[in-house]
Design a protein around this nucleic acid. Structure first.
Ligand SMILES: [Zn+2]
Ligand SMILES: [Zn+2]
Ligand SMILES: [Zn+2]
Ligand SMILES: [Zn+2]
Lengths: 132, 132
DNA sequence: CCCGACATGTAATGATATTACATTGCGAAG
DNA sequence: CTTCGCAATGTAATATCATTACATGTCGGG
């Protein structure tokens, strides 16, 4: 489960590179379209690669967008609770990990017996778009 | 925009009642199926009613599930930041509003110029399912 | 009565994700 | 070397979620 980049298969590498080069989240079908030139023909090729990359922690899924992003901080938050601030205007995504949010959610969890396990997605407007 | 229950149209009432009677989130198509006996025939009838109910604050959309729930606390959190703890095992959803999480997210927002605007969805496991 | 606003009805299509099954590539066992 | 077994890959079909486009109904104000 601790795959380094060079353990990746061809399809996984292509998908990861596509996400890394993108300036924001991409849907699976957008990735597919960008990889047609590399022989991709069906959604499953993308979804299978994503499945592995998610397992490796190299990619995150943004469930509220039905889209995917390359991890902004690989190697550093493998086991922590992370969060994404998603701008609903421009689509910018900011991946972060805030200690106090984490701790407080931990406290709420303890009170309620709930165990948070996936990244949290916060939707709103970024500084630029809020100004406009 | 401050509709009371009796302002609702027939379709809106049917959809809201369906969600209120359900023991968890429902997809739009599940709602549609439950309302076939009441004359519903197309997804749009459901989506249009949901659109209004979301505007009235009587229903929330769980983006990570592509599903909808009746608001657990109508009248009380109209302007606050709310959150849902979603169990990935049993599908139970707990709607809450935690002051410290809210405040801390506000602080993070101020530092980063980001303005949170939609409910936060926290995915993990509830007490029951975590035990098993 | 006529009009405009809004709710509704219906069909078609788009977007996202999964299931099912066939094929290929490659290292380990024999 | 050959065969086996496994993981990755290829392809098609289908399931699930959501929107667009256009037609019709309903009701109150002028
Ligand atoms: Zn990350
Ligand atoms: Zn923005
Ligand atoms: Zn609510
Ligand atoms: Zn549970």
């Amino acid at each position: 489960m601790n795959a380094t980049h060079q353990d990746l298969t061809r399809n996984q590498t292509l998908v990861l590179d596509t996400l890394a080069k993108a300036d924001g989240p991409l849907s699976a079908y957008t990735i597919l379209d960008r990889l047609r030139g590399d022989g991709f023909r069906a959604p499953l090729q993308v979804y299978r690669a994503l499945e592995k990359l998610l397992g490796f922690g190299l990619v995150h899924r943004l469930e509220s967008l039905n889209a995917f992003v390359a991890c902004a901080h690989p190697h550093c938050h493998a086991h922590g609770l992370i969060a994404f601030a998603i701008c609903e205007d421009c689509g910018q995504v900011d991946e972060f990990s805030d200690a106090v949010v984490r701790e407080r959610l931990g406290a709420w969890s303890a009170e309620n017996g709930f165990k948070a396990e996936k990244p949290i997605e916060i939707r709103g407007h970024c500084a630029n778009c809020a100004a406009a």
